[in-house]
Nucleic acid binder design. Structure first.
Length: 121
DNA sequence: TGCTTGACATAAT
DNA sequence: CATTATGCCAAGC
């Protein structure tokens, strides 16, 4: 009985995707949120991975501050895909954040979440 | 349809 | 603290 049509399920996922992006758009410049945090904000606390999945599928020109999302350790999560010739998306993300005033621990490349984590009101 | 992957999180060591 | 093991759950294949 708990079986919904395939179409309906897909539509639900699309809605979820939109809500995830909406929340990410709320993150103010100079702050960061974790994947789990965003998942919780859309009432799906166990779907942190899906948040990453959504971001992965973003177009480069998408109007979303994807760089403000980091993992629970305050570190930039590693991707599989890299940009050629020594450049990496991770480095770009760090640069974007630093440009907004977010400071990284030099050794461990970690952000102080206590200080920079976004607190939705 | 079933198995593998992955921009995660948390508990245990 | 850092590293490892487990759990998760939607996407892709």
């Amino acid at each position: 009985m708990a079986k919904k049509t395939l179409q309906k399920m897909q539509r639900e996922q699309d809605r979820l995707r939109d809500r995830i992006l909406q929340q990410i758009r709320r993150i103010p410049s100079g702050s960061v949120a974790t994947y789990g945090q965003i998942a919780a904000l859309v009432d799906r606390p166990r779907n942190a991975r899906q948040v990453g999945s959504v971001l992965r599928s973003l177009d480069d020109d998408a109007d979303v501050p994807w760089h403000r999302v980091v993992n629970a350790c305050g570190q930039i999560s590693e991707r599989r895909s890299r940009i050629g010739a020594g450049g990496s998306v991770e480095l770009l993300q760090q640069a974007l954040l630093e440009a907004e005033g977010v400071r990284f621990d030099e050794e461990r490349r970690r952000i102080d979440l206590k200080q920079y984590r976004w607190q939705p009101t």
